[in-house]
Amino acid sequence: MNDFIQLIIAGLATGSIYALAAVGFTLLWQTSQTINFAQGEFVMLPAFFALAGMKFFGLPFPIAAIAAILLSMLTLGVLFKTVVVDPLHKQGTLPLVISTIGLAILLREGVKEFYSAEAQRFPSFFPNINIGTSAANGGSGFNVSADQIGVLIVATATILLLSWFLASTKTGRQMQATAQNPTVARILGVNVERMVMYTFLINGALAAIASLLISPIYLAKFSSGETLGLVAFVAAIVGGFNQVRGAIVGGFLVGIIDNLVAAYISTSYRQAVPLALLVMIILLRPQGLLGRAEERAV
């Protein structure tokens, strides 16, 4: 039973990071119909911003982390929107999807070329200590690390804060109105362009927070976004691509299932599990677990 609970906690911690990345997917899709296949690389890159800040500018880790979040909002938010999305948006979804795939390759190879091809150790905000009790010392044998709990708390708090912002503030509601129907939102006086820009800024910040949380566990490496991006995409689809709460549920679900499959079925097939889940959801409930069905005229 201890093992099972430990796996659930570990799955929730990993799932919360998937959820952060998945929420970014859904936000961009809802407000600008952008499917960002560079989202995994968006989570990879901020860790290198922080490492570069520490290595080249001698910044202490907390300052480097804040600088990484701000730089991510600028580059992965403002620059991404103005340089990649805006010029291609009017050409339709497909050219934009292809350009984000190209951007993912550019970011991966850029980090490999200008920083390193090797994995890098990344500092953690949380102490690397075990909160549980060792069976050898007469304890229950239940182990959970402060790191996992810290990741879970920060990621969940970020998601709750975002949910509150979207639901309870004027700007948040204007963003939701923009997502639901930009034409009507504009008639009602909402500055749609500004709301879309806010969405990109939020996505940049979410990616940076996910990066700072996951890099101490996974290590910072140019290729780490490949799996993350795929899993976050699957999480968004599973939960419902047009619902933020769907992406959150999807993220947690994929994290837990991934850990349970690796422990009780086979580690070898764990990478196939998210894809199998994706196929099942598309076949049985195409709108996702919490998503709403959409119809579009062709």
């Binding site: 093992d3 430990q6 796996l7 570990a10 990993t14 996974y218 850990n259 690796a262 422990a263 990478q271």
Partner: peptide, 20 residues
């Protein structure tokens, strides 16, 4: 007897199996 994949990042489940 536990196999892991090259490039694998998350070892939580593997460590739980080893401990058990």
């Amino acid at each position: 007897d536990i196999s892991i994949e090259a490039g694998q990042a998350d070892f939580a489940a593997d460590v739980v199996k080893v401990k058990g």
